[in-house]
Nucleic acid binder design. Structure first.
Lengths: 192, 192
DNA sequence: AGCCTATGTCATTCTCCGTTGACTTGGACA
DNA sequence: TGTCCAAGTCAACGGAGAATGACATAGGCT
């Protein structure tokens, strides 16, 4: 809203930079407000550009959203996780402050927004399958791969959402208990 | 959309019944489509009423949403869950089609929609804690109540989101495996 | 029966927002 | 320096959907 991604003095007619600024602003706004709640005029203003340029560069709001979505789904590091310590690592991360890594949460928040909007949800499936579910399936292996992969993804998502919407994180023994139980739950899904 | 909550022949000028029908339709539409994606005309049509009545009875879309939220967040349902069969019941529901039999999960889906919309999210925090998390805590009891309650809510949310994202539900043995594992996971959080 | 008010209907208006197309300007190149 | 195209600006259009208010009517009450 008030924060402007672009410097106060506008770029010097650099189409690529303008396009990138619009895309960055779009990712931010879509992640914060969802497809319907994000307005092209706001995005353009945030990027220090004119709303008409969105049409020129992205072909409309749909195109901008698709571009932002594609850009938000970063290559994953799923295969690099350590299967031994996976549960505890994730659990510890989830027990932390939600605002500690706001930037890293943007892409997820974007996905969550897209997923909860019936009109944009269909756009997700292909990308999510390819970038997340397939690597997860390969990584966990064992029996009931499909079921375990979906369940793992579900738990992961749920923990992230809870992390986003909760106002105060757990402290003390309750936090330890949360980590302990969460770690065990995740780990049980990873081990065959 | 096509399903009409009210009987084919309209009520006989019963304001309370009309109000209730509108509220029921609103809960359904808001849960499915979110605040922005739910249209008053659709809600009114679904309730077998005129859109103008929404204004009369609820003072506008905001008022209707607030009323539907308040009604959705009522704690009555939680205590009614059967602790013995809880895991399997929820798991079976989650394994079904996203648009089938969501009646019991309307309130959860409503919360998810409200939580991901910046304009409606502020309405949630206090109400969710008081009327949602507290009953859950009371219901599950036992040790580590706070941690288990949060974990349970997280898993629930994650399963809901996964339902929204996926385009095709599981079938056959994979479905059975999913239900089995999900039921066990949920049940382990409920039993002390 | 005959009013009278609450209930329901309809057409219209208002507002917001995405989109469009004509217009202006900067700057690269000859 | 002059030309020309891409980059950027501006105002207006159109559709969608919420809100409004005038109008119609059912049905209780006297």
């Amino acid at each position: 809203m008030t924060t402007v991604l672009a410097p106060e003095r506008s770029r010097k007619r650099d189409a690529d930079a303008t396009r990138a600024a619009i895309l960055a602003a779009a990712k931010k706004h879509f992640a914060q407000s969802g497809y319907d709640g994000a307005f092209l005029r706001d995005i353009a203003a945030d990027a220090g550009a004119d709303a008409a340029l969105i049409n020129r560069y992205f072909g409309g709001k749909d195109g901008l959203f698709a571009a932002a979505l594609k850009d938000s789904i970063a290559p994953d590091r799923i295969a690099q996780w350590d299967r031994k310590t996976f549960g505890r690592e994730v659990a510890t991360m989830m027990a932390g402050h939600a605002h500690a890594q706001v930037d890293r949460m943007h892409s997820f928040q974007f996905l969550l927004q897209a997923a909860t909007n019936p009109t944009t949800a269909p756009l997700l499936n292909e990308a999510v399958q390819e970038r997340f579910m397939c690597p997860i399936r390969d990584w966990i292996g064992g029996d009931d791969v499909e079921a375990r992969a979906r369940l793992l993804a579900s738990v992961f998502i749920g923990l992230l959402v809870e992390r986003l919407i909760r106002d105060e994180p757990l402290e003390g023994p309750e936090r330890d208990a949360f980590i302990e139980r969460t770690a065990a739950m995740l780990q049980s899904l990873v081990e065959h």
